[in-house]
Protein backbone atom coordinates (compact mmCIF):
# COMPACT_ATOMS: atom_id res chain seq x y z
CA UNK A 1 0.00 0.00 0.00
CA UNK A 2 1.17 3.48 -0.74
CA UNK A 3 0.91 6.56 1.44
CA UNK A 4 -2.40 8.34 1.20
CA UNK A 5 -1.58 11.61 2.93
CA UNK A 6 -2.89 12.87 6.21
CA UNK A 7 -6.42 12.41 7.41
CA UNK A 8 -7.15 16.11 6.99
CA UNK A 9 -5.97 16.06 3.41
CA UNK A 10 -8.13 13.05 2.68
CA UNK A 11 -11.22 14.73 4.05
CA UNK A 12 -10.42 17.87 2.06
CA UNK A 13 -10.10 15.76 -1.08
CA UNK A 14 -13.58 14.39 -0.48
CA UNK A 15 -15.32 17.61 0.52
CA UNK A 16 -13.66 20.22 -1.66
CA UNK A 17 -14.82 19.13 -5.14
CA UNK A 18 -18.57 19.12 -4.40
CA UNK A 19 -18.31 22.41 -2.48
CA UNK A 20 -16.42 24.07 -5.30
CA UNK A 21 -18.91 22.73 -7.79
CA UNK A 22 -21.82 24.10 -5.71
CA UNK A 23 -20.15 27.51 -5.52
CA UNK A 24 -19.71 27.47 -9.27
CA UNK A 25 -23.35 26.57 -9.95
CA UNK A 26 -24.67 29.11 -7.44
CA UNK A 27 -22.38 31.75 -8.96
CA UNK A 28 -23.71 31.16 -12.47
CA UNK A 29 -27.25 31.17 -11.08
CA UNK A 30 -26.65 34.47 -9.24
CA UNK A 31 -25.12 36.05 -12.33
CA UNK A 32 -27.96 34.87 -14.54
CA UNK A 33 -30.71 36.26 -12.30
CA UNK A 34 -28.98 39.58 -11.68
CA UNK A 35 -27.63 40.27 -15.16
CA UNK A 36 -30.71 38.85 -16.86
CA UNK A 37 -32.94 40.87 -14.53
CA UNK A 38 -35.13 37.83 -13.83
CA UNK A 39 -38.26 38.44 -11.77
CA UNK A 40 -37.86 37.12 -8.23
CA UNK A 41 -41.11 35.18 -8.49
CA UNK A 42 -39.71 33.33 -11.50
CA UNK A 43 -36.23 32.51 -10.23
CA UNK A 44 -34.82 34.19 -7.13
CA UNK A 45 -31.05 34.74 -6.84
CA UNK A 46 -29.25 32.41 -4.35
CA UNK A 47 -28.41 35.33 -2.05
CA UNK A 48 -32.12 36.01 -1.52
CA UNK A 49 -32.73 32.33 -0.87
CA UNK A 50 -29.95 32.36 1.71
CA UNK A 51 -31.51 35.39 3.37
CA UNK A 52 -34.89 33.67 3.43
CA UNK A 53 -33.32 30.56 4.92
CA UNK A 54 -31.94 32.63 7.76
CA UNK A 55 -35.04 34.74 8.37
CA UNK A 56 -37.40 31.78 8.36
CA UNK A 57 -35.10 29.46 10.24
CA UNK A 58 -37.39 28.69 13.15
CA UNK A 59 -40.34 27.91 10.87
CA UNK A 60 -38.08 25.75 8.68
CA UNK A 61 -36.66 23.86 11.63
CA UNK A 62 -40.09 23.22 13.14
CA UNK A 63 -41.45 21.85 9.90
CA UNK A 64 -38.24 19.97 9.13
CA UNK A 65 -38.65 18.01 12.37
CA UNK A 66 -42.08 16.87 11.26
CA UNK A 67 -40.77 15.77 7.88
CA UNK A 68 -37.63 14.15 9.27
CA UNK A 69 -39.75 12.05 11.60
CA UNK A 70 -41.89 10.90 8.68
CA UNK A 71 -38.82 10.15 6.57
CA UNK A 72 -37.08 8.11 9.27
CA UNK A 73 -40.19 6.06 10.00
CA UNK A 74 -40.95 5.59 6.30
CA UNK A 75 -37.35 4.67 5.53
CA UNK A 76 -37.31 2.14 8.35
CA UNK A 77 -40.57 0.69 7.05
CA UNK A 78 -39.07 0.52 3.54
CA UNK A 79 -36.08 -1.42 4.88
CA UNK A 80 -38.34 -3.90 6.63
CA UNK A 81 -40.55 -4.32 3.55
CA UNK A 82 -37.68 -4.37 1.03
CA UNK A 83 -35.46 -6.81 2.93
CA UNK A 84 -38.45 -8.91 3.96
CA UNK A 85 -39.63 -9.24 0.36
CA UNK A 86 -36.10 -10.04 -0.80
CA UNK A 87 -35.69 -12.84 1.72
CA UNK A 88 -39.16 -14.16 0.90
CA UNK A 89 -38.46 -14.09 -2.83
CA UNK A 90 -35.10 -15.82 -2.45
CA UNK A 91 -36.55 -18.44 -0.11
CA UNK A 92 -37.90 -20.53 -2.99
CA UNK A 93 -37.94 -20.57 -6.77
CA UNK A 94 -41.72 -20.84 -6.86
CA UNK A 95 -42.20 -17.82 -4.63
CA UNK A 96 -39.69 -15.92 -6.72
CA UNK A 97 -41.54 -16.70 -9.94
CA UNK A 98 -44.88 -15.82 -8.38
CA UNK A 99 -43.92 -12.53 -6.75
CA UNK A 100 -41.00 -10.95 -8.61
CA UNK A 101 -42.97 -9.77 -11.69
CA UNK A 102 -45.55 -8.10 -9.44
CA UNK A 103 -42.79 -6.38 -7.57
CA UNK A 104 -41.78 -4.72 -10.84
CA UNK A 105 -45.40 -3.97 -11.75
CA UNK A 106 -45.85 -2.26 -8.38
CA UNK A 107 -43.42 0.39 -9.56
CA UNK A 108 -45.74 1.34 -12.44
CA UNK A 109 -48.34 2.54 -9.94
CA UNK A 110 -48.15 6.32 -9.64
CA UNK A 111 -47.85 6.68 -5.89
CA UNK A 112 -48.99 10.34 -5.74
CA UNK A 113 -52.21 9.21 -7.42
CA UNK A 114 -52.99 6.57 -4.85
CA UNK A 115 -51.82 8.63 -1.90
CA UNK A 116 -55.27 10.27 -1.45
CA UNK A 117 -56.76 6.80 -1.19
CA UNK A 118 -54.32 5.96 1.56
CA UNK A 119 -55.46 9.05 3.42
CA UNK A 120 -59.07 7.91 3.07
CA UNK A 121 -58.14 4.46 4.33
CA UNK A 122 -55.92 5.44 7.22
CA UNK A 123 -56.62 9.06 8.15
CA UNK A 124 -54.64 12.28 8.27
CA UNK A 125 -52.06 11.27 10.83
CA UNK A 126 -48.56 9.88 10.38
CA UNK A 127 -49.65 6.54 8.95
CA UNK A 128 -50.40 7.44 5.30
CA UNK A 129 -47.13 9.39 5.14
CA UNK A 130 -45.06 6.50 6.41
CA UNK A 131 -46.82 4.19 3.95
CA UNK A 132 -46.25 6.51 0.97
CA UNK A 133 -42.56 6.92 1.81
CA UNK A 134 -42.24 3.18 2.22
CA UNK A 135 -43.92 2.52 -1.14
CA UNK A 136 -41.76 5.07 -2.92
CA UNK A 137 -38.47 3.78 -1.55
CA UNK A 138 -38.68 0.03 -0.85
CA UNK A 139 -38.08 -1.07 -4.44
CA UNK A 140 -34.33 -0.42 -4.79
CA UNK A 141 -33.77 -2.06 -1.41
CA UNK A 142 -35.70 -5.15 -2.46
CA UNK A 143 -34.11 -5.51 -5.90
CA UNK A 144 -30.55 -4.99 -4.67
CA UNK A 145 -31.00 -7.33 -1.72
CA UNK A 146 -32.42 -10.01 -4.02
CA UNK A 147 -29.30 -9.75 -6.20
CA UNK A 148 -27.14 -9.73 -3.09
CA UNK A 149 -28.69 -12.92 -1.78
CA UNK A 150 -27.56 -14.58 -4.99
CA UNK A 151 -24.01 -13.29 -4.62
CA UNK A 152 -22.47 -15.92 -2.34
CA UNK A 153 -20.23 -18.27 -4.32
CA UNK A 154 -21.80 -21.70 -4.83
CA UNK A 155 -18.40 -23.23 -3.97
CA UNK A 156 -18.48 -21.51 -0.60
CA UNK A 157 -21.98 -22.81 0.11
CA UNK A 158 -20.76 -26.30 -0.80
CA UNK A 159 -17.76 -25.90 1.46
CA UNK A 160 -20.09 -24.97 4.31
CA UNK A 161 -22.12 -28.08 3.62
CA UNK A 162 -19.02 -30.25 3.96
CA UNK A 163 -18.42 -28.54 7.31
CA UNK A 164 -21.91 -29.64 8.35
CA UNK A 165 -23.51 -26.21 8.23
CA UNK A 166 -27.30 -26.38 8.08
CA UNK A 167 -29.29 -24.08 5.82
CA UNK A 168 -29.76 -21.44 8.51
CA UNK A 169 -26.00 -21.41 9.16
CA UNK A 170 -25.29 -21.14 5.45
CA UNK A 171 -27.63 -18.17 5.31
CA UNK A 172 -26.19 -16.50 8.40
CA UNK A 173 -22.54 -17.11 7.64
CA UNK A 174 -22.43 -16.72 3.86
CA UNK A 175 -25.52 -15.53 2.04
CA UNK A 176 -26.41 -12.71 4.38
CA UNK A 177 -22.95 -11.12 4.67
CA UNK A 178 -22.45 -11.47 0.91
CA UNK A 179 -25.75 -9.62 0.40
CA UNK A 180 -24.99 -6.66 2.64
CA UNK A 181 -22.93 -4.54 0.19
CA UNK A 182 -25.73 -4.91 -2.36
CA UNK A 183 -28.32 -4.03 0.24
CA UNK A 184 -26.45 -0.86 1.11
CA UNK A 185 -26.45 0.20 -2.55
CA UNK A 186 -30.21 -0.09 -2.42
CA UNK A 187 -30.38 1.80 0.86
CA UNK A 188 -28.53 4.76 -0.63
CA UNK A 189 -30.96 5.06 -3.52
CA UNK A 190 -33.86 4.60 -1.14
CA UNK A 191 -32.54 7.33 1.16
CA UNK A 192 -32.81 9.86 -1.65
CA UNK A 193 -36.23 8.59 -2.73
CA UNK A 194 -37.64 8.72 0.77
CA UNK A 195 -37.33 12.53 0.81
CA UNK A 196 -39.40 12.80 -2.37
CA UNK A 197 -41.83 10.32 -0.85
CA UNK A 198 -42.31 12.58 2.16
CA UNK A 199 -43.12 15.55 -0.09
CA UNK A 200 -45.69 13.50 -2.06
CA UNK A 201 -47.25 12.32 1.17
CA UNK A 202 -47.59 15.79 2.60
CA UNK A 203 -49.12 17.16 -0.58
CA UNK A 204 -52.10 14.92 -0.13
CA UNK A 205 -53.09 15.57 3.42
CA UNK A 206 -50.97 17.48 5.88
CA UNK A 207 -51.06 20.66 7.92
CA UNK A 208 -47.35 20.85 8.63
CA UNK A 209 -44.03 19.67 7.25
CA UNK A 210 -41.71 20.88 4.51
CA UNK A 211 -43.75 19.30 1.70
CA UNK A 212 -46.82 21.03 2.98
CA UNK A 213 -44.88 24.31 3.06
CA UNK A 214 -43.81 23.87 -0.57
CA UNK A 215 -47.45 23.55 -1.56
CA UNK A 216 -48.59 26.57 0.42
CA UNK A 217 -45.74 28.81 -0.70
CA UNK A 218 -46.21 27.73 -4.29
CA UNK A 219 -49.84 28.82 -4.12
CA UNK A 220 -48.75 32.19 -2.77
CA UNK A 221 -46.08 32.49 -5.48
CA UNK A 222 -43.59 33.01 -2.64
CA UNK A 223 -40.88 31.55 -4.85
CA UNK A 224 -37.90 32.61 -2.76
CA UNK A 225 -39.34 31.02 0.38
CA UNK A 226 -40.24 27.92 -1.58
CA UNK A 227 -36.64 27.57 -2.72
CA UNK A 228 -35.51 27.92 0.88
CA UNK A 229 -37.72 24.95 1.73
CA UNK A 230 -36.37 22.95 -1.21
CA UNK A 231 -32.81 23.63 -0.04
CA UNK A 232 -33.77 22.38 3.41
CA UNK A 233 -35.23 19.22 1.91
CA UNK A 234 -32.07 18.70 -0.10
CA UNK A 235 -30.00 19.06 3.05
CA UNK A 236 -32.08 16.39 4.78
CA UNK A 237 -31.61 14.08 1.79
CA UNK A 238 -27.85 14.60 1.79
CA UNK A 239 -27.59 13.99 5.51
CA UNK A 240 -29.61 10.79 5.29
CA UNK A 241 -27.45 9.59 2.41
CA UNK A 242 -24.26 10.39 4.32
CA UNK A 243 -25.62 8.61 7.35
CA UNK A 244 -26.25 5.46 5.32
CA UNK A 245 -22.78 5.69 3.77
CA UNK A 246 -21.23 6.09 7.20
CA UNK A 247 -23.15 3.11 8.49
CA UNK A 248 -21.89 1.07 5.55
CA UNK A 249 -18.34 2.04 6.36
CA UNK A 250 -18.72 1.08 10.00
CA UNK A 251 -20.61 -2.14 9.43
CA UNK A 252 -18.73 -3.38 6.37
CA UNK A 253 -15.11 -2.35 6.95
CA UNK A 254 -13.92 -5.33 4.88
CA UNK A 255 -15.90 -4.12 1.90
CA UNK A 256 -14.95 -0.51 2.29
CA UNK A 257 -11.24 -1.23 2.70
CA UNK A 258 -10.90 -3.73 -0.11
CA UNK A 259 -12.69 -1.28 -2.40
CA UNK A 260 -10.28 1.40 -1.38
CA UNK A 261 -7.22 -0.63 -2.35
CA UNK A 262 -8.82 -1.63 -5.61
CA UNK A 263 -8.99 2.02 -6.59
CA UNK A 264 -11.33 2.04 -9.55
CA UNK A 265 -12.95 -1.20 -8.45
CA UNK A 266 -16.68 -1.26 -8.95
CA UNK A 267 -17.29 -4.82 -7.93
CA UNK A 268 -16.42 -6.90 -4.95
CA UNK A 269 -14.61 -9.69 -6.74
CA UNK A 270 -11.98 -10.38 -4.18
CA UNK A 271 -10.32 -13.52 -5.28
CA UNK A 272 -9.59 -14.76 -8.72
CA UNK A 273 -8.73 -18.17 -9.95
CA UNK A 274 -7.95 -19.99 -13.14
Amino acid sequence: MFARGTRARRIAAAVLPPVLFAIFVLGVWQLYTVVGDIKESTLPPPTDIAKSLWENRSMLIDNAWVTIKEILLGFAAAIVLGVGLAVLIRSSRKVERAIYPWLVVSQMVPIPAIAPLLVIWTGFDLRPKVIVIMLVSFFPIAVNTIDGLRAAEPELLNLLKTLKANSWQRFRKAQLPAALPFMFSGLKVAAALSVIGAVFAEWVGASEGLGYLVLVLNNQTATTEMFAVIFTLALIGILLFLFVSLLERVLLPWYYESRETEGEGLHLEVEENA
Binding site: E155, L160, T162, N273
Partner: peptide
Protein backbone atom coordinates in the same frame (compact mmCIF):
# COMPACT_ATOMS: atom_id res chain seq x y z
CA UNK B 1 -19.10 -33.79 6.68
CA UNK B 2 -17.03 -36.98 6.92
CA UNK B 3 -14.04 -35.77 4.91
CA UNK B 4 -12.20 -32.45 4.71
CA UNK B 5 -12.63 -30.67 1.42
CA UNK B 6 -10.76 -27.78 -0.11
CA UNK B 7 -12.48 -26.58 -3.27
CA UNK B 8 -10.67 -25.39 -6.38
CA UNK B 9 -11.20 -21.72 -5.45
CA UNK B 10 -9.93 -20.59 -2.06
CA UNK B 11 -13.47 -19.56 -1.01
CA UNK B 12 -12.23 -17.36 1.81
CA UNK B 13 -14.97 -15.13 3.13
CA UNK B 14 -14.01 -11.52 2.42
CA UNK B 15 -16.02 -10.31 5.41
CA UNK B 16 -14.05 -12.38 7.89
CA UNK B 17 -10.52 -11.77 9.06
CA UNK B 18 -7.94 -14.41 8.16
CA UNK B 19 -8.19 -15.79 11.68
CA UNK B 20 -11.97 -16.04 11.60
CA UNK B 21 -11.79 -17.69 8.21
CA UNK B 22 -9.51 -20.42 9.46
CA UNK B 23 -11.73 -21.23 12.44
CA UNK B 24 -14.86 -21.77 10.34
CA UNK B 25 -14.84 -25.53 10.74
CA UNK B 26 -14.22 -25.36 14.50
CA UNK B 27 -17.00 -22.82 14.86
CA UNK B 28 -19.44 -25.08 13.03
Amino acid sequence: GSVGYMPQRDCLMPWRTVLDNTTLGLEL
